[in-house]
Design a protein around this nucleic acid. Structure first.
Lengths: 240, 240
DNA sequence: AATGTGCATTTTGCATACAAAAATGGGTTG
DNA sequence: CAACCCATTTTTGTATGCAAAATGCACATT
């Protein structure tokens, strides 16, 4: 029933920190609502009843509606005129699209990262990598995901392109959402880890072309994984 | 004082048509406000006074605030806690970032378009191309831009990836905004047209690799153009 | 039984009201 | 003359009110 911490306190790369003081309500609501959607607590196609949701989030309808508009622009919710909003459906076709675009973005990021990353940046990523390996070895899926995400995000950060990061983040939310629904076979999991090894290797050697290709493949494999899950009707098994 | 029609009635590629009936107020406001920002009628860093803007757009503050949140997610406005929103500044660094990402997206689109486009699609793009040439010959800049945008959008559409289109659209708004501020030398203009010739050629031959490279170069040149304009202090000369 | 039809309820969309925070400005003091 | 302080005004952030649209449901009709 508790909500996983997904606000990514990101050990490295804290670019958009700032607001220390008491955050604004509608901003809180944006993050809270996004979290509910990404973690699958609000299932795809679920209707967002304003009165009910506002009460659940402890606000009035106004900040909630503003948050919904924000998330609509991110693509996580869909606005239906005069009928409010629904959680964006999780269609296989949409997933395919998102992964294709993410592939291009991560490939770009990988290339740039090989150019721009400092040795310290790479060391940080290596550290994250070993954390991830540890969690993989212990079969701790949630923590594995966490570090996996942090690694990808760090590579993005190293590209030195905040716009790229922001764009990626928006699309990645969809992936995270699918992740929560897909079960990971040990076989696929091992494969993914192996791919990460290769990626770290390419980054260390600053072989941008190689890293680009690896990231594309990695994303393609993730897609295949998600498609399996979606195809097998495991779509609606997200929460609770 | 009148506002240029920027809602792109798009001769070809009308994918997201639907709502025939009376659109919702906050949606109107989103488009109207985006237009004001993209055309430079609202200059970068301009403060968005809710009371004034609401009056100007003929609504109350509620739909306006919802629109602002939506556009904030697109990156066209920035939210400052307890101090409202401002039109996103138009920094050279941001432009560089946007063009790099757009380059990757358009390259991806070009590659996919060479695979997926029907002959009819290509014929349509060719038609747009000739329209553009005509306007170029007559020195009609605004109409040239219009068809230029339509061509790029059509290539995107041909990629058959709605998410790609949506992502591109959001970033492209920033470019459009810069466009309205940059003056185009005849020399650069001719060069851009020549590049479009090559692009059409590659698309016709379905040479995805070539088109990809051309699009990347084309975007890089556009960036150089915008940077000139921004660098020469012509930033604040948008409107009025 | 299936399909309309009209009324009651719910829900959305927009406007307004109110409270808290920030800007403004004028006067005082060092 | 500049810097600071405090009261006033303005502006933002949130909650609430109200009208229009949608939904649900009982009942009538074929």
């Amino acid at each position: 029933m508790t909500i996983p911490a997904h606000t990514t306190p990101s050990p490295i790369a804290s670019n958009v920190t700032s607001l220390a003081e008491h955050r604004l309500l509608h901003e809180e609501v944006i993050d809270h609502l996004r979290d509910l959607i990404v973690t699958g607590e609000l299932l795809p196609e679920a209707k967002l009843n304003e009165r009910v949701l506002a009460e659940r989030l402890g606000t009035s309808r106004t900040p909630l509606r503003e948050a919904i508009k924000f998330l609509a622009s991110e693509g996580l919710v869909e606005l239906v005129p005069n009928r409010g909003a629904v959680v964006a459906p999780l269609k296989p076709e949409k997933m395919r699209e998102v992964f294709v675009v993410l592939g291009a973005l991560e490939a770009l990021a990988g290339e740039q990262a090989c150019r721009n990353a400092s040795e310290a940046d790479i060391a940080d990523i290596r550290a994250l990598h070993y954390h991830m390996l540890a969690h993989h070895a212990r079969g701790e899926l949630a923590q594995y995901f966490r570090y996996n995400q942090l690694i990808h995000q760090s590579i993005l950060d190293c590209a030195g392109n905040a716009t790229l990061v922001q764009t990626w983040r928006g699309l990645n939310a969809h992936v995270k959402r699918a992740r929560y629904m897909a079960n990971l076979s040990r076989e696929r999991w091992d494969k993914a880890v192996k791919e990460h090894e290769d990626m770290l290797d390419a980054l260390t050697r600053r072989d941008g072309t190689k890293l680009q290709a690896l990231l594309r493949d990695h994303l393609a494999n993730k897609l295949a994984l998600v498609m399996e899950a979606l195809g097998s009707g495991a779509v609606a098994e997200g929460a609770r």
